[in-house]
Design a binder for these strands. Structure first.
Length: 112
DNA sequence: CCCATGACCACAA
DNA sequence: ATTGTGGCCATGG
């Protein structure tokens, strides 16, 4: 199946715009897409991210607590943490340190 | 169309 | 802080 202008593709486009070394939350993306409250759908889209041809930095997307809730959905449970660490993001106990400081809000950063 | 599922979020106790 | 519950809505059977 091809996700052309699907909901997923919409999410992917936002996720791919996340700067290196920054993270955002599912809720923020959902709100940016005008689906505030439907943050589940963002996570759902991420679940399909591995089916996308493009590389989706899903590791830069966490929940509102900065918790690596989706780490088990990666190829390896530790892959998400590894990727974050490689970008200079500190992760301890599956949680991002100084989360609010590296938090990237699409509603503000993109805010057209 | 109805039902189940889901990498979430907000609120109440 | 932890636990439970409802809501959100796209996708698939």
């Amino acid at each position: 199946m091809k996700a052309d202008d699907s909901f997923f593709q919409r999410v992917f486009e936002v996720v791919k715009q996340i700067p290196h070394g920054r993270v955002t939350s599912y809720g923020a993306i959902a709100e940016y897409l005008g689906m505030k409250g439907s943050s589940r759908m963002v996570g759902w889209a991420m679940n399909a991210s591995h089916t996308a041809d493009d590389n989706i930095p899903a590791h830069r997307v966490v929940n509102r607590n900065g918790d690596l809730t989706g780490k088990f959905h990666f190829a390896s449970p530790t892959l998400m943490e590894e990727l974050l660490l490689s970008e200079g993001i500190k992760v301890v106990d599956d949680r991002i340190i100084d989360f609010k400081n590296i938090y990237w809000n699409p509603n503000i950063e993109i805010a057209q």
